[in-house]
Nucleic acid binder design. Structure first.
Lengths: 228, 228
DNA sequence: GTCTATAACTTGATAGAC
DNA sequence: GTCTATCAAGTTATAGAC
């Protein structure tokens, strides 16, 4: 029989994904899991810690996979930086693999991540800290795949890409979850389409900043010649 | 002195945007607005109706503007369908105009919309109904701007674009709100960059569907002629 | 580890005086 | 229209028996 701890995690994962964090009460979770309220506090101290545990259970191995994939692609490229497509793939494959493996939460978890991405203002920064190293490695890889793009623009587009991906994770229906093992076909296609879309965005022409730069007044004590 | 009703709307708008709908209590709203709890129920029946009122106050005129702009661009194009850039502009200009007019909620409202876009599973469909006509007109315009793109792909990319825009609205800092009137410069630039990014995505190559089509078995009892 | 019981508090909503 | 007072229900969290 499945452990109480896992049943709580499963139920919480599903309900958080469906209704959001604050809209989901611990009581609805224990009802769905068929366990006692006190068990939640025994295993996970608090509601917030429960959310963190729900996330870490999936995100930890997925992030590991992401780094391994990126490293492999870098090795395959033989010294040269891997192409943009490959970098995105290294990030998205583990994501979509989660999405089609029922034993790893299936569609539910990625939906949760898509949600939290918007709700995250009130999320404990601790959670985001777990994604820190991964994000750093990938932004570095993006930088090398798009050397022409100014760093600030790259950062911005990176965030847009995250928003776009979150959108896909959120509203892709939970269709083929009950189907057989390599459900991947549908997801594979979705991922290819997403990557094509994202690459085009990353490579779109940079719009020059035509703003009038703010005039920063020189300190009064500045000598005359310094203005040049 | 400002009416109670408006003070409630203002406070609710800000708090919903900052914390999300379910995480914001009516009591925190009345505290911020400096009004009585009963006043909320007097003016807006319920919490849900309050949210609806908050949205409609801004969305109604913005949607009007969107339709007018689209119509103007169509007239300017003289019979021919306006370019993709123009269609996106017609949708986004009113959005970003909201974002830089302090008297119309400024950054706060667009942030709320960015949030609700993700939280919307539990939102009353009534609200989305108000956007219905606008979305219909624009998807039609998009279709004519991109005649080569299959309808299903266009719909999908349209949703991605909404997700991308929501991301921008959500995390653009509330910087220049306190600055002088035509704050627009910063937003104008942001909008241009967003449009460039989105156009590239819309025009990215379509990934062919390599999935094996599912075999639909014919019903055994079906007579040959009856199907028609 | 799992339960019951309950504390301590917050929530949305309403009735009724002014 | 605006207030006070209050309801009924729901919330997270904990103490203590088994």
């Amino acid at each position: 029989m499945i452990q109480t701890k896992d049943r709580i995690l499963d139920a919480a994962e599903r309900l958080f994904a469906e209704q959001g964090y604050s809209a989901t009460s611990l009581r609805s979770i224990i009802a769905a899991a068929g366990v006692n309220l006190a068990a939640v506090h025994y295993h996970f101290h608090s509601k917030e810690s429960l959310l963190e545990a729900v996330i870490l259970r999936r995100a930890e191995p997925a992030n590991q996979e992401r780094l391994e994939l990126l490293e492999r692609y870098q090795a395959e490229a033989g010294g040269r930086p891997p192409a943009l497509e490959k970098v995105l793939e290294a990030f998205l494959i583990p994501t979509f693999r989660l999405a089609c493996d029922p034993s790893r939460g299936g569609n539910v978890f990625v939906k949760l991540m898509g949600r939290l991405h918007a709700e995250s203002d009130l999320l404990p920064g601790i959670i985001l800290a777990h994604f820190g190293p991964v994000l750093m490695r990938f932004s570095e890889a993006l930088n090398r795949a798009l050397p022409e793009l100014p760093a600030s623009e790259l950062l911005w587009r990176g965030r847009l890409a995250m928003g776009t991906a979150a959108q896909v994770l959120r509203d892709t229906p939970q269709a083929s979850l009950s189907t057989s093992e390599p459900v991947s076909q549908e997801w594979e296609h979705t991922m290819r389409r997403l990557i094509s879309y994202l690459c085009a965005g990353f490579r779109s022409p940079v719009v020059p900043d035509t703003r009038i730069p703010e005039v920063v007044p020189l300190p009064e004590t500045a000598p005359v010649q310094e203005t040049k």
